[in-house]
Simulated scan of single mutants.
Amino acid sequence: MAGATRIGGRAGLLTALGHGLVEAPLVVGLAFGLTRFLALPGVTAAIGIGGGLMLAWMGWGLLRAPADLVAAGAETRGSPPAGSLVLGGAIASVSNPYWVLWWATVGTAYVVAGLRHGVLGVALFYIGHYLADVIWFGAVGYGVAAGRRVLGARAHAWLLAGSGVFLIALASYFIYYGLGQMGRIA
C-alpha cells in the first residue's frame, strides 16, 4: 500500500485488481484438484521460503525508506503507474504463504461447497470473495492515505518502520517454517 501515500485510496483498488487476477485462475485450479499439489511438502517449503524472502524484502524496503521522503510528502514524487500497483498486488498475493495456506484449506472448502451448485456456485463464490477483497483493500488504501495526514509525517515514518520490523519478523517465521518442511530444521 505504499502507493496510497502518493495516489490515495485508489492504490488499494488497483492492488485488489492484481490480487483478484491471480485468485481467479487459482479458484479454477482448485475446482480441478490443485489442492493435492499445494499440500506437497516441497511445494509448501518453497512457498514458505519464497514468501518469507519476499516479505523480508518488503520489510527492508519499509525500513530503509528515508524519513525525509515521508516528511517531504511522498505524493510530490508523482503517481506510480497503475500497472505497477496491479502487478504489486499480484506479487504480494502469490508470495504470501498465508494466502496460499488459506486457499489450500479454507478457500478450497468454499470452492468445493460452490461446486455443489455447479460452475455458477463457484463463480458466485469468487465474485463475493473478490468484492470483499475490493472493500478491504480499498478501505486499507484510503486509511493509509488519510493516516499520513492524521498522524503527521514523523509518526507516519515510525509506523512504516514498525511495519517493516513486523514484516521481517514474519518473514523469519515463514523461512523457518519452509526450512522445517525441507527437513533442514528439526
Rank of each mutant, 00 (worst) to 15 (best):
R10G: 00
V111Q: 08
Q181K: 15
S172Q: 04
R36V: 03
F37G: 00
N96F: 14
V144T: 02
G141W: 07
T35N: 11
L167T: 02
G180E: 12
A92M: 14
W103G: 00
I185Y: 08
G42Q: 05
M58R: 12
G83M: 09
V70G: 03
G183D: 04
A92I: 05
A145M: 07
W102T: 03
V140A: 09
A113Y: 12
V134R: 08
A155Y: 13
T76F: 10
G59D: 02
I7A: 01
Y98W: 15
G73M: 10
G183M: 09
Y110S: 06
V134H: 08
G61D: 09
W57N: 00
M1W: 11
M58L: 14
L17Y: 07
A109K: 13
G18R: 06
V122C: 03
Y110V: 01
G42M: 08
R77T: 01
A123Y: 05
M182F: 14
Y142I: 02
F37K: 02
A132F: 14
G107V: 01
I168T: 03
R184Q: 08
I175Y: 09
L124R: 10
W57K: 11
V112F: 12
Y126Q: 05
S84P: 05
W103H: 05
I135N: 02
A153P: 06
G162D: 05
R149D: 06
G52H: 04
T44M: 11
Y142M: 08
L124T: 14
R10C: 00
A145I: 03
L13M: 12
G138R: 12
G50K: 09
I91H: 09
G73I: 07
F137I: 01
L179F: 13
A65V: 10
G138F: 11
L13V: 12
A146L: 11
Y130I: 09
A45G: 03
A161Y: 10
Y177T: 01
T35W: 10
G52E: 02
L62R: 15
L63C: 05
I127A: 14
G143A: 14
G20V: 04
V165C: 07
M54Q: 05
R64N: 00
Y130A: 07
W99L: 03
L120M: 11
S93V: 06
A169N: 01
V122L: 05
V22M: 06
Q181T: 04
V43S: 04
L101D: 02
F37P: 00
A92T: 13
G50L: 03
R6T: 05
R154D: 07
A31V: 02
F137S: 00
L167P: 00
R36W: 12
P25Q: 06
A155I: 05
E75V: 01
T105F: 09
G180R: 15
A24F: 15
R149C: 00
A74W: 15
A146Y: 13
V86D: 01
L21R: 10
L170E: 04
G147L: 08
Y126C: 00
R184P: 00
L21T: 03
H117D: 10
Y173T: 03
T15R: 08
P41M: 09
G78N: 06
A153C: 08
L30A: 01
A109M: 13
G141A: 02
R6A: 12
A2L: 15
I185P: 01
R184Y: 13
G83A: 12
L87N: 03
S93C: 11
T76L: 13
A67Y: 08
I185L: 13
V165M: 09
A39W: 15
G8A: 06
G152I: 07
L14C: 04
